[in-house]
Nucleic acid binder design. Structure first.
Length: 794
RNA sequence: GCCCGGGUGGCGGAAUUGGUAGACGCAAGGGACUUAAAAUCCCUCGGUUGCAUAAACCAUGCCGGUUCGACUCCGGCCCCGGGCACCA
């Protein structure tokens, strides 16, 4: 083993840092390139998913720098969140020191990877100088009428007397700590009106040409715009004649309003379904024999979290005891109550058409309800209505480790926002972490009381904190002006960097994080803070790094420690392997075997460069590449070098790093074939120089070391990306496959400029072709220029 | 359940627009060098039949279709992964 990664890697990292090679100017010099990786949650340990993310980002950053771009590649910490609070509960400590320690450790790990970050722009969302501005964003939303309060259901453990996250609800709706059955509870919560931006978030997806199509489709479906109608059905109950139920305000005739996108299927309606929370659900059963079953069913559903409910495969329900009248044909149809209808969507009630809808069909079969094929209904009915699946964003969290929502409740003035000049609302430290009871903030003596900003009277602070998605929805703006203490970022400075040219992160963020970030950007745009209405021009969604078929995550505990790999093989090998093992968008199954191969490759490069023409020990004679045997080696090397530059450049452009690395391996293998030929020294020097340049974004330490060994004084990182000469890449001979009836028979080698006739003649003269076609008739010849020739015989 | 991906040798993967399936790497087997080992170098390597580096057939999750030609396009299934709004 020649390159001592443990020596050369820290050495060059030190040199780069000393020369401040990765510090970015306040504003770009020349064309800018904002290269962004999703900042990590500081779990305390770097895992392979991170390494993959940052290796991709770093290759792009280094490549773009060599192309002359002014590159901004920052890093920071998405530092608020539940794990720190859980750790505090478990270890009877405080989330802050725990988080700080995690960051400290991960920073050391990150630096070992030799990533070219501008560390002077590091952000930490859990520090007041950052969350001050997260609170500022909340106030901006509030000012613009986009923040409001309403009741919402949460998962609640009655024994711990506390709100649970979905993640804390384990199998069969039990609390993760005490296994008590989780309940649903209604609480007043803060929301952002993201629905007001639904149409823009939907329409502007079309602008995002640099986004993967599947991500756009997922967002489109998530927003779920649909055009339909609301139709009113009259109600009948067996015991009470139609119209006998009390009328709602402004209602002339009692009825059940449903939403449908398919009014044309009205003749096929055989029953109606209400969500269990529908206000009419219980009412309809009153005085019928169904009263008790309905009550029991609604009770049962209450104990199911909305999360579990939406995901269970088998849907259930109960007859309400009431009937409705189909306005199209006056049929009397039963009204059911079932959990496959959601109160949040439409009117919380649907007309069921088993003949047209799969869910209705499954439910009808299960409950022996009629299925009716019917003519399309063409009459005019109901009121046109556009609905969205997208719901307003619930930003309240009943937790400590987040940015406090900057609101004060005053008995006189009501809900009053904290003045911007009074930000930040600091997280108090006199707090208990028990995992029980209401939000920890309610236990602070210093926090709760506050003067009303309006009247100066005694007020009470909001004790909810902001969802951590708030922190990550604007951090890319902060990176552009990270130390500003007068505003979240200077619009002029941010303008010179925004939008992000390339955003890279896990596919698991395809919807929520990316949608919220787009929403924030649009609000900032409307408020005049930015001229971008979309934050990320290009998006690369990397696949997961999995181990034993399962996602590597802190919660699953199947995390592979990159430290071990770096220690054994070095950062260059680790980076190279993770890029080589799989294309970026695809899932990558981690395996320690294969890392070895990349390590061997780097050693081969090392020996190629630093051991000129060593005595070849052992082995048999070296054979030239078969297809170029007849040609002059010097020309071969030159041509292959230009082809190599072209190939790698194209691969890096399309982020096909695995094939780019394969090409470097092939090229290295080729150079080995000519290694001992003294007459080729100048060709080889040219080839090696380019090999190192192209390799440098992938394996920067080794490339830098060898670059200097070759006598270069300046850093390889400052060199220009090589260009190829199109005149020198053309092969003189090409290989044409001959197939008969689509089956390959043989190949022929012809001059690159051979004419069709010449190739056909040569193909027909081929021995194998003659043997196969003997006694048969050639009825068709297909020639694809430069590609192949196919003979169809009978 | 719904939405979005993926399925190619023993393994990770490659394959411009439908045109030589298996590049590159790993693992495996054989050999060279060495007192020996490590490292390095050379050869073989999808499957079946076959003495064969002769030839044929089969082969890109499964079934069917379009085409001179299908991993690639179309229809129907099966399996695996991600997301599903309080994990980030």
């Amino acid at each position: 083993m020649l390159p001592k990664s443990s020596i050369i890697e820290p050495h060059w990292q030190g040199v780069w840092e000393k020369q401040q090679l990765f510090l970015t100017d306040k504003a770009p010099q020349g064309p800018k390139y904002y290269d962004l990786v999703m900042f990590p949650y500081p779990s305390g340990n770097l895992h392979m998913g991170h390494v993959r993310n940052y290796a991709i980002g770093d290759v792009i950053a280094r490549y773009k720098r060599m192309q002359g771009f002014s590159v901004l590649q920052p890093i920071g910490w998405d530092a608020f969140g539940m794990p720190a609070e859980n750790a505090a509960i478990k270890n009877k400590t405080h989330p802050e020191p725990w988080t700080d320690k995690c960051i400290e450790h991960m920073k050391v790990q990150l630096k070992r990877l030799g990533l070219s970050y501008d560390w002077s722009r590091e952000v930490n969302t859990s520090k007041p100088d950052y969350y001050k501005w997260t609170q500022w964003m909340f106030l901006l939303m509030y000012e613009r009428g986009l923040a409001y309060r309403k009741k919402a259901t949460v998962n609640f453990c009655p024994k711990c007397d506390t709100v649970l996250a979905n993640e804390q609800v384990v199998k069969e709706d039990k609390c993760w700590r005490c296994e008590t059955l989780v309940e649903e509870k209604e609480l007043e919560q803060w929301f952002f009106k993201i629905t007001e931006y639904g149409d823009r978030l939907l329409n502007d997806l079309e602008k995002l040409a640099g986004w993967p199509e599947p991500v756009k489709i997922m967002q489109r479906n998530w927003i779920g715009k649909s055009e339909g109608v609301e139709i009113k059905f009259k109600i009948q109950t067996p015991s009470v004649p139609s119209g006998h139920l009390p009328l709602a305000k402004g209602e002339k005739e009692r009825g059940l309003v449903i939403y449908t996108t398919r009014p044309d299927t009205l003749f096929g309606v055989t029953y109606m379904v209400l969500a269990p929370e529908h206000p009419m659900a219980l009412e309809l059963s009153k005085g019928t024999s169904q009263e008790k079953p309905v009550r029991d069913y609604i009770d049962k559903v209450k104990h199911e979290s909305t999360h579990e409910r939406s995901m269970k495969a088998a849907k259930d329900g109960v007859f309400s005891g009431g009937y409705a009248v189909n306005p199209a044909n006056n049929d009397t149809i039963p009204i059911w109550i079932a959990d496959y209808v959601l109160m949040e969507y439409g009117t919380g009630a649907v007309m069921a058409v088993p003949a047209h809808d799969e869910r209705d069909l499954a439910f009808a079969k299960q409950n022996n309800l009629p299925i009716k094929q019917a003519e399309p209904y063409t009459g005019d009915l109901g009121v046109k209505k556009t609905n969205y699946k997208l719901r307003d964003w619930l930003v309240s969290r009943q937790r400590y480790w987040g940015a406090p929502i900057p609101i004060i409740y005053c008995d006189k003035c009501g809900t009053v926002p904290v003045r911007k000049e009074d930000l930040p609302v600091l997280l108090p430290t006199d707090v208990k972490f028990t995992g029980e009871g209401a939000s920890p903030l309610t236990t602070s003596k210093t926090f709760l009381k506050a003067k009303c900003p309006k009247c100066g009277g005694e007020g009470r602070r909001e004790t909810d904190t902001l969802d951590t998605f708030n922190c990550s929805s604007w951090y890319y703006f902060r990176y552009t002006d990270p130390h500003n203490n007068k505003m979240p970022f200077d619009p002029g400075v941010s303008k010179s960097w925004m939008p992000v040219d390339q955003y890279i992160g896990g596919i698991e963020h395809a919807i929520l994080h990316l949608l919220y970030s787009r929403f924030f950007t649009k609000v900032l745009f409307d408020a005049g803070w930015t001229s971008c209405d979309e934050p990320f021009t290009n998006l690369l969604t990397q696949g997961m790094v999995v181990k034993d078929g399962a996602k590597m995550s802190k919660s699953k505990g199947n995390v592979v420690d990159p430290d071990n790999i770096i220690q054994k093989y070095g950062a260059d090998t680790a980076r190279l392997f993770i890029l080589f093992a799989s294309p970026p968008e695809r899932e990558l199954e981690w395996s320690d075997a294969g890392v070895e191969g990349c390590f061997r490759f780097l050693n081969r490069v090392w020996r190629l460069v630093s051991e000129p023409a060593p005595p070849r020990r052992g082995g048999s004679k070296i054979q030239g590449n078969r297809d170029v045997q007849s040609q002059v080696p010097g020309q071969i090397i030159e041509r292959k070098t230009h082809q190599f530059i072209k190939g790698v450049t194209e691969d890096v452009e399309k982020f096909s790093f695995n094939t780019a690395i394969a090409k470097m391996m092939e090229f290295t293998n080729l150079l080995y074939e000519y290694k001992n030929d003294k007459s080729l020294i100048s060709n080889s020097a040219f080839a090696i120089r380019n090999l190192l340049l192209l390799l440098s974004p992938f394996a920067p330490h080794l490339s830098e070391e060898l670059w200097h060994q070759l006598g270069n004084k300046d850093s390889i990182l400052k060199q220009a990306w090589p260009k190829y000469d199109p005149a020198l890449i053309a092969e003189t001979e090409i290989v044409i496959p001959i197939s008969i009836n689509g089956k390959l028979k043989d190949t022929i080698t012809v001059p690159a400029d051979a004419k069709e006739e010449e190739i056909k003649q040569k193909a027909l003269a081929n021995e194998k072709v003659k043997n196969t076609t003997a006694g048969k008739q050639i009825i068709k010849t297909i020639y694809v220029p430069g590609k192949m020739i196919n003979l169809v015989i009978k």
